[in-house]
Write a protein that binds this DNA or RNA. Structure first.
Lengths: 135, 135
DNA sequence: CAGAATCCCACTCGATACTG
DNA sequence: CAGTATCGAGTGGGATTCTG
């Protein structure tokens, strides 16, 4: 079945990009591929604890369908699989980098004092939203 | 009510970024803000035809809540509103730029021959997915 | 370990109608 | 024009269970 998130009308470039990376966890998964060179299911699970194994598998499958990553399954016991970025997948690095850079800056300068151990803690401080109000 | 898409556990920078731009149309909206300097509701609707006015309004509201854009309402008749990026919102430009750049490259080199007038037409050509298979 | 299958509820989002 | 309100079908995704 075909996923059909964006119609890609008008050939809008951002919509094309989203077509590939807009899954709930795809950008995060790719980030860990680029940053850590991670390639195993369990490692990803450990890094992205908020993502269930079901979702992780689904997102990885879609990324594989789209040619972003490829999967090698070793039918040994216990089961072992590794994922690698395709050449095509590697072209996404600047996009993920830009997102990571922005997020880092946000975490450090704006949300630096926040406690990430609380779910939902990543929230805007008042002063920032306030800035938009008095504009 | 608080939106709660990502828990932002571990302070993952990509998750922080997604917290702001992960709405279904937010990145596309921001793209048009940056590219066209667009600031009216109707203009956005014309540019992003796949997005209903209801969704557009919802996404714009969330962007305003998060301090990315600000809204000025002129209670004239007919109603007029304009949206502007906040200083904070402008910091997202590199992220949107990277997405747009990737999408442009994708549209030109890979999907160049596709017909975007058909919904769902933005789909991977076989050869690209095939590349991942024979890896 | 690395997933697929099933169940099922909460929420998303489109359609429609209405308002200042 | 620039939205909001309401409804309802469809789906996303969590929890759980099962398999090679």
């Amino acid at each position: 079945m075909q996923r059909h998130i964006y119609a890609c009308q008008d050939g809008c470039p951002v919509q094309s990009t989203l077509q590939i990376i807009a899954g709930k966890w795809k950008a995060v998964i790719l980030y860990h591929f680029f940053k850590d060179g991670i390639c195993h299911f369990g490692e990803l699970q450990r890094e992205i604890q908020a993502c269930s194994s079901r979702m992780l598998a689904l997102q990885l499958n879609e990324l594989e369908e789209d040619g972003v990553i490829s999967k090698n399954i070793y039918s040994t016991m216990p089961l072992k699989t590794d994922y690698t970025l395709t050449e095509f997948g590697k072209t996404l690095e600047p996009v993920i980098d830009a997102m990571a850079a922005w997020g880092n800056h946000y975490n450090q300068t704006i949300a630096g004092a926040e406690d990430f151990s609380q779910p939902g803690a990543c929230r805007w401080p008042v002063d920032v939203t306030a800035k938009s109000k008095n504009k």
